[in-house]
Amino acid sequence: MKMKKIRADIQALLFLLPFLVVYILFTLWPMVKGVEMTFYKWTLIKKMDFIGWDNYRQVLQDREVWEALWHSAIFVVLTTPTMIVLSISLALIANRKSLLQKFYRSIFFIPSVLSVAVASYLGLFVFQPYTGLVNSILHLIQLLPGDQEIFWLTETSLAWIVITLITLWWTVGFNFILHLSAIQEIPDEIYEAARLDGANNNQIFWRITLPYLTPITKTIMMLQIIASFKVFMQIYIITGGGPLDQTRPIIQLIYQTGFRKNNLGYAATMSYLLFVILLVLSALQYWINNRKGAEDR
């Protein structure tokens, strides 16, 4: 009996081995190595000198780091709530019984299959002055005088709007699917009962649909916050972090420090700072959720 179990374990291990090796080699080991790096002056090529806590001391006082973190935070604040509202709205639209149901489902999801570069460049073309779609439409409906142009990417606040819109358009598909499937799982009897009791559409939405969507929304929120904090590529392509580094997120700074300034040790330190921040955020969110859950019961 015992032999059998051991054999089963070995078998299982054998199946897990290929992934495990790759995971340890390319994920766990670099993480450990990363910690080591934070204590050294470390260039792209090699380990230089042990410098103890210097990188940590520097990172806490470095204005650029905190500014970049702040920009990442702005991105989180801009995209997370809008993402959830948009995702629920699209899910509601696509859930309505209509001839266009399938069409909606496809067009809401399709942008998600694009790669980040394609989505960002499309966005760049759309917001380009003189010939871009947005300015052309504004000219057409005469909201914008013919001899004027909006330069979307040279004003920090406009640049944030562009980044947010492109990101929402590109990534809403996945969350939309999650919300849609959650809506479809709500039992019809509940809606029936509500209608018999004379509830109107508004009441049904706020008292039934939304509460039923809360668990999945919480999950989406957490994933969204973590994913948004790691934003890099679309901003890098759209604004390059400009104007004046006012939209540069922390990952871009880490990338620049590591690969442009040739300072991997300091870049690793910033990465771990971000790691700790995300850890704290997640813990906080978990704690809040948990407490609420307890009250409900």
């Binding site: 994920t27 957490m222 973590i226 870049a267 790691f275 995300l278 978990y286």
Partner: peptide, 26 residues
């Protein structure tokens, strides 16, 4: 159920962080 989700959280975090790392490891 709740107990499990802390594991899931930690896992998600670990994975997400490892993605940060791997993005820089080219």
């Amino acid at each position: 159920m709740k107990k499990r989700s802390i594991g899931v959280t930690a896992m998600a975090l670990l994975l997400s962080f490892s993605m940060v790392l791997s993005a820089c490891g080219g």
